[in-house]
Amino acid sequence: MNPPLIEIKNLSAGINGKQILKGISLTVRPGEVHAIMGPNGSGKSTLGYVLAGRKGYDVTGGSVTYDGKDLIELSPENRAREGLFLAFQYPVEIPGVNNTYFLRAAYNEQRKHRKLEEVDAVDFLAIVRQKMKLLELPEAMLKRAVNEGFSGGEKKRNEIFQMAVLDPKLAVLDETDSGLDIDALRIVAEGVNKLKRPDNAAIVITHYQRLLNYIVPDFVHVLWNGQIIKSGGKELALELEEKGYDWLIGKNSK
């Protein structure tokens, strides 16, 4: 078996003294896709933010080992440079900052971190064009400011585009399906599938099962009240769809 890419052990974390994650353990190996499902308020997005190192989200217990390193010790930017990517549920607008310019800055930060030479604008454009083709994205997206005036679907596609360019080892997709119509959902999911390789992994956070029709997970975990209350294979998602979260939550609270 491959060594784990990320190993979360008994992780507890909260915001403003409020405990949200209450002892989560999860191991993800290269080549795997894990789905984290759960009702609203169960701690799904918090898990994404804690892994990415968002300020204000404090780890109060447990450990996270990522690619052999103590993840919690790394700054948010160094986690990114080490290949951890968070696709945001609500991508942020950066008015006036050109999408390509921004993405090249991000790409070069990663290159510098890995002691590789930075790429110039011309070479970068070639890399970007190739990824756009792969994801069937319009070139116009390159000329626009980061997420400024983008529709919900465009923002999500821009997240996947960034993911394609930055080529992370571990991608955490936070409710990438929310706010997408069925066509946009398919495009986004196909993008994710095309980027899948034996040496990278994804944690797909979602509320609904429908995304998992397109991105087929190897494992499904149900998060409720800050804990993983059930894990299983892809069939667990279908079971949840059929029976609802109450089926598990009810059982769990007995």
């Binding site: 300020k55 930017e77 945001f88 607008e93 930060e109």
Partner: peptide, 11 residues
Amino acid sequence: QIFYLNQRGIE
């Protein structure tokens, strides 16, 4: 906004 850029590797 700052966190978003941090998350892309920008300090």
